[in-house]
């Protein structure tokens, strides 16, 4: 399972990277989201998979999976949500202001 997930993570990273490199705001954000999904999977994989039951003490008949990565992912998900929300609104505002969603047109090297 871990090996399978490693490959999935790799694929998600590849797709995410491809999207990020595509100069279009929406695609970039989609790519970033995919990568953050991949990372969440990676963290939980790193904690070890299916080594026990859910980390709830009430069903304590079996062992528990590692709860630490789960807590980390929870924090990461929330932070990621916050950042994505900000980035989305930012990109929307940038588009409105500049009239383009192509990062290639947002170089800003010309003197303003």
């Amino acid at each position: 399972m871990e090996s399978l997930m490693a490959i999935v993570i790799g694929i998600l990273f590849s797709i995410g990277t491809y999207l990020i490199l595509s100069n279009q705001m929406l695609r970039i954000i989609l790519g970033l989201s995919l990568i953050s999904h991949a990372i969440n999977i990676m963290i939980i994989v790193m904690g070890g998979l299916k080594t026990g039951g859910p980390p709830l003490l009430s069903n304590s008949d079996r062992g528990f999976t590692d709860a630490v990565p789960q807590a980390l992912i929870l924090t990461a998900i929330v932070i990621n949500f916050a950042v994505t929300a900000f980035l989305l609104v930012l990109s929307y505002r940038t588009y409105k202001k500049h009239g383009t969603d192509d990062m290639n047109n947002l170089r800003g090297n010309e003197h303003e």
């Binding site: 709830l56 003490l57 009430s58």
Partner: peptide
């Protein structure tokens, strides 16, 4: 505190 859920 005891089951899935919580403040968030």
């Amino acid at each position: 505190h005891h089951f899935p859920g919580g403040g968030f």
